[in-house]
Write a protein that binds this DNA or RNA. Structure first.
Length: 302
DNA sequence: ATGGTACCCTGAGAGC
DNA sequence: TGCTCTCAGGGTACCA
């Protein structure tokens, strides 16, 4: 499901169950997802205390008390759900109790973490479900994280003020790849995906097909477009996180609730709709770039 | 180094 | 109903 706002939403949903809990058992139900699980995966996790749950780009990382980090990526279709108590029974939920999401398709429940922790009186299970199996999990020593192949080339987070027009200009200078491709390049900016790139480009009034280097002036300075783009990226990401991410195809968050940012999409998956920009009058188009759909207004995105 | 493509996998929805 | 086709929020390997 995940771009950065969805992964951050998952992190916040899982943190109360994961943090300060002990992993008492791990069910690893197949040898691989996108990649093989590491050797002795379940064994290395069993007995560990989870000291924190973080996020870098689209990766979730659970810090463990032995100095290792459980790194998890959701791919396209991965999701977690939290189960508490006797979820298999038909007992009605207690009033005011959490909604307990049942598995949509238990065949794709690939990993189950059994936890004991202080957050809730009941034992907790965290279940990873991933029909397409583009997600993966691995274990990395914390001291080796920065130099790990997954992380060493990752670009900056599109949150906070670090991403400004000048940095964007530096990253994109002289690049001939389209803006769409440059924004999706995780080595430049880490965490953007197809939806939020489409949305940010529309907000900034920039065409996804325009060469990335053209948002830099001849003098090597950030253009007005670069200013708008940096702002648009930070805003759309912040708004999406605040909304609990986007829930496409009924994809639920860890606590069973749905994010609602999909209702704020201005162009994504809106081919043929009138451009929502005031006074534009254009139409939202869909064109494939690099094998993925770009949604944009052909009139106001230059 | 840079940019483009094919491919990994399953499920949902459209069209016939 | 059932078939076939296309598409899907990601990333990597490999090519020119």
């Amino acid at each position: 499901m995940p771009e950065l706002p969805e992964v951050e939403t998952v992190r916040r949903g899982l943190a109360p169950s994961f943090e300060d809990a002990r992993i008492v058992r791990v069910e690893q139900r197949r040898p691989d997802l996108r990649f093989p699980f590491p050797e002795r995966f379940a064994e290395r996790l069993t007995g560990r205390l989870v000291t924190g749950l973080g996020r870098r780009s689209k990766y979730l990382m659970a810090d463990l008390d032995d100095g290792s980090v459980l790194v998890m990526h959701l791919g396209m279709s991965g999701s977690f759900r939290v189960e508490m108590g006797r979820v298999e029974s038909e007992e009605p939920e207690m009033p005011g109790e959490f909604h307990i999401p049942r598995s949509k398709d238990p065949r794709h429940d690939h990993v189950v973490f059994h936890l004991e922790g202080p957050a809730r009186p009941d034992a907790v299970r965290i279940v990873y479900n991933d029909p397409r199996r583009f997600g993966f999990m691995t274990l990395v020593e914390r001291a080796a994280l920065a130099s790990h192949p997954l992380f060493e080339k990752l670009g900056i987070e599109p949150t906070g003020n670090q991403l400004d027009a000048d940095l964007l200009a530096r990253l994109f200078a002289n690049r001939k790849a389209p803006l769409k491709a440059a924004l999706l390049d995780q080595r430049l900016i880490a965490g953007l995906g197809n939806i939020y790139v489409c949305e940010a480009l529309h907000r900034a009034g920039l065409s996804p097909k325009r060469a990335a280097g053209t948002i830099v002036t001849k003098a090597g300075r950030a253009s007005a477009g670069a200013e708008r783009l940096a702002l648009a990226i930070r805003e759309v990401i912040a708004e999406a996180i605040a909304a609990g991410g986007s829930s496409l195809r009924d994809h639920r968050q860890a606590d069973g609730t749905l994010g609602y940012f999909q209702h704020a999409f201005l162009v994504y998956d809106r081919e043929g709709a009138p451009c929502p920009r005031q006074g534009c009058g254009g139409t939202v188009l869909r064109e494939v770039q690099g094998g993925r759909s770009s949604f944009f207004c052909g009139r106001c995105q230059k």
